[in-house]
Simulated assay, not measured.
Amino acid sequence: MPFASAPTTIASITSQSDAAAFRTLNEEWISRLFTLEEEDRAVLEDPFGHVVGPGGDVLLAHEPHSGTAVGCVALLAYPDGVFELAKMAVAPAAQGRGIGRRLVTAAIDRARELGGTRLFLGTNSKLAPAIHLYKDAGFVTITRDRLPVVDYYARADTLMELR
Rank of each mutant, 00 (worst) to 15 (best):
P2W: 04
P2Q: 09
P2H: 10
F3C: 03
F3M: 10
F3S: 11
F3H: 11
F3G: 06
F3L: 12
A4I: 10
S5P: 05
S5T: 15
S5E: 15
S5V: 14
P7R: 10
P7M: 06
T8Q: 04
T9E: 03
T9D: 01
I10N: 02
I10M: 05
I10V: 12
A11K: 08
A11L: 07
S12G: 10
I13E: 00
I13L: 15
I13F: 00
T14R: 15
S15I: 05
Q16L: 12
Q16G: 04
S17Y: 02
S17W: 03
S17C: 06
A19G: 11
A19Y: 03
A19T: 07
A20Y: 14
A21N: 00
A21F: 00
F22M: 03
F22P: 02
R23K: 15
T24P: 01
T24R: 14
T24V: 09
L25G: 01
L25W: 03
L25N: 01
E27P: 01
W29T: 05
W29R: 08
W29N: 08
I30V: 15
I30R: 08
I30G: 07
S31Q: 10
S31C: 09
R32I: 07
R32M: 13
R32E: 15
F34L: 15
F34R: 09
F34Q: 13
L36I: 14
L36G: 05
E37C: 01
E37H: 04
E37W: 02
E37F: 01
E38T: 13
E39P: 00
R41D: 06
R41C: 08
A42F: 03
A42C: 06
A42V: 11
V43I: 15
V43C: 09
E45C: 08
E45P: 02
E45L: 09
D46W: 00
P47C: 12
P47Y: 09
F48K: 04
F48Y: 04
F48V: 00
G49F: 04
G49L: 02
G49N: 04
H50S: 09
H50Y: 05
V51D: 00
V52W: 00
V52F: 02
V52P: 00
G53Y: 00
G53Q: 13
P54T: 09
P54K: 11
G55E: 09
G56H: 07
D57G: 06
D57Q: 11
V58M: 04
V58A: 02
V58G: 03
L59R: 01
L60Q: 03
L60M: 08
L60Y: 05
H62S: 14
H62I: 02
H62A: 11
E63M: 14
E63A: 15
E63W: 08
E63S: 12
P64I: 15
P64T: 15
P64N: 11
H65A: 14
S66W: 07
G67C: 05
T68M: 07
A69R: 06
A69Q: 07
A69S: 14
V70N: 01
G71D: 13
V73I: 14
V73H: 09
A74S: 10
A74C: 04
A74W: 00
L75W: 04
L75C: 07
L75Q: 07
L76Q: 08
L76P: 00
L76W: 03
L76E: 07
L76T: 09
A77P: 06
Y78D: 03
Y78A: 10
P79C: 11
P79S: 11
P79E: 14
P79L: 12
G81K: 10
G81S: 13
V82D: 12
